[in-house]
Simulated assay, not measured.
Amino acid sequence: MAGPTTTAAQRGARRTNGTSSARSRPSRPGPRGGRTRLPSPRTVLVVLAALALVASTVWVLYGSKWLRVRDVTVSGTRVLAPARVEAVAAVPLGSPLASVDTDAIAERLRRELPRIDSVDVVRSWPDGIALEVTERKPVLLLEQGTKFVEVDRKGVRFATVDRQPRGVPLLRLTADQSPSLRRFDTERLIREAVGVAGELPAAVARDTRIVGVRSYDSITLELTRNRTVVWGSGEAGEAKARALTALMKASPKAGHFDVSAPTAPAASRS
């Protein structure tokens, strides 16, 4: 009885060992599992063509002699000399047009030429830079000795000139003793006067010689033919402009107009 039992046990052990060996063997990859697919020739050609296109574009823009700055044009100037604008711009002639720092040129122009209100620096392909300038326009003048300081619609003092530009009124500030200076400084009063000048009807603006400011709410106009206008504060400017236009049409021979209260304007001969 002992013999068959031992034999059966040995067969069972062999089966068990065989199973363990089979489980411990590393699995072989399938016929497709470990194979790396290479790109097709068509894909390789497309990639190479794209790289060649990028390289040629970069070379044309930055390395070739065809797209380099050769010409600078200036437009929009009325007082400034175009040659002066071009000199301050300092556009790097001969440099690749694509590499020109247009923002830096614009900033330099605005900083060194305060008369410039805005400027567009435009690449003009294939080889030009265009400087499109907008100059500040004076709406009032401040006397400074024998010269005049120009003030634009934003209240910016941007230039000093020897002669009074035609059609630009003087600003006369007499607010030294005004209590309003405690609340509104000189710069604020100048801005108020600028605002009034901007609200004037065109016909009145042409005839205005002096804008007087005694305080925040006491602004007057001196016109041609010894006419005066009491404007009051800078508030309700559009309504005051309409009232003044109507008064001048209704009383063309009047010499004094008061629109400080635009709902109750008044006109008189003196």
Rank of each mutant, 00 (worst) to 15 (best):
V44D: 00
V44C: 03
L45W: 09
L45E: 13
V46M: 12
A49T: 13
A49N: 06
A50V: 11
L51I: 09
L51E: 02
A52G: 13
A52E: 04
A52R: 00
L53S: 10
L53A: 14
S56K: 00
V60A: 13
V60L: 13
V60Y: 12
L61W: 05
L61N: 07
Y62Q: 08
Y62V: 00
G63L: 05
G63D: 01
S64P: 08
S64Y: 04
W66K: 13
W66A: 14
W66Q: 15
L67I: 09
R68L: 11
R68G: 01
V69K: 02
R70H: 12
R70W: 00
D71C: 08
D71T: 12
V72C: 02
V72S: 00
T73E: 12
V74C: 04
G76A: 09
R78C: 01
R78F: 07
R78M: 10
V79P: 01
V79L: 15
A81S: 14
P82Y: 06
V85A: 07
V85I: 09
E86L: 04
A87T: 15
A87L: 12
V88F: 07
V88T: 13
A89R: 01
A89D: 04
A90I: 07
A90Y: 03
P92L: 07
P92R: 07
G94H: 05
S95W: 05
S95G: 11
P96D: 11
P96L: 07
L97D: 03
L97T: 06
L97M: 02
A98R: 08
S99W: 10
S99D: 15
S99L: 12
D101G: 11
D101A: 13
D101F: 10
D101M: 10
D103I: 11
D103F: 03
A104E: 12
I105P: 00
A106G: 13
E107V: 02
R108I: 07
L109Y: 07
L109R: 05
L109P: 08
R110Y: 03
R111P: 00
R111V: 11
R111C: 08
E112I: 00
L113A: 08
P114F: 02
I116V: 10
D117M: 12
V119Y: 02
V121I: 14
V121Q: 07
V121R: 11
V122H: 00
R123D: 09
S124G: 15
S124Q: 15
W125L: 14
P126I: 10
P126G: 09
D127P: 08
G128D: 06
I129A: 09
I129T: 08
A130M: 03
A130K: 10
L131C: 00
L131M: 04
E132M: 10
E132L: 14
V133M: 02
T134I: 12
E135R: 02
E135A: 01
R136C: 09
R136I: 06
R136G: 05
P138D: 02
V139F: 07
V139K: 05
L140Q: 04
